[in-house]
Amino acid sequence: MREILVILVAAMLTDNFVLVKFMGICPFLGVSKKLDSALGMGAAVTFVMVSASLCTYPVYTFILVPLGLEYLKTVAFILLIAAFVQLIEMVIHKKIPALYSALGVFLPLITTNCAVLGVTILNIDNGFTLTQSLINGLGGGLGFTIALVIFSSVRSRVEKSDIPKAFKGVPSTLIAASIVSLSFMGFSGLLT
């Protein structure tokens, strides 16, 4: 139990995927302009991270390892994730239109998000069990959502301020991200 909690908190806060590990920067900068879209993107990423952890684990353990093909994990995982996201998109589109209108826009965006491929590879590299992988995926997704939501609020403030011309837009956004990232360093002593 304690171990699970440690993985969850680590993935969410101390090793936050966006602000500490630098994975998924593109959606972090692209979709954080508005709170609603930040929440939608966060939910979609959390969902895909957990399901990607769920479906890559058995493929690695029961197919790649027995065949001695561990080195193919990058190729196998990226294909699996791409196919899986496409499938989910179709299923949600047909069966749950309400959910599709909330998340559908973001689903295709995350097929090749490096945070999703990253979480599945980290699960394998850290030797996690299936439960631990799922928790890692959940924590990573929640951490991504937290970072996106906090940052969307910071950003709306920054954009209204009067800053030098060359710093307008992306540079000021990145510097604001640096300050948010600095605040996440405060969590680093949490798990000792």
Binding site: F167, L174, A177, S181, M185
Partner: peptide
């Protein structure tokens, strides 16, 4: 540290655009 990465990239991009 991670924060420095965002900061440095922000400054470099600003300089390039300047």
């Amino acid at each position: 540290m991670p924060a420095g990465g965002f900061f440095t990239l922000g400054i470099i991009i600003a300089v390039v655009y300047k």
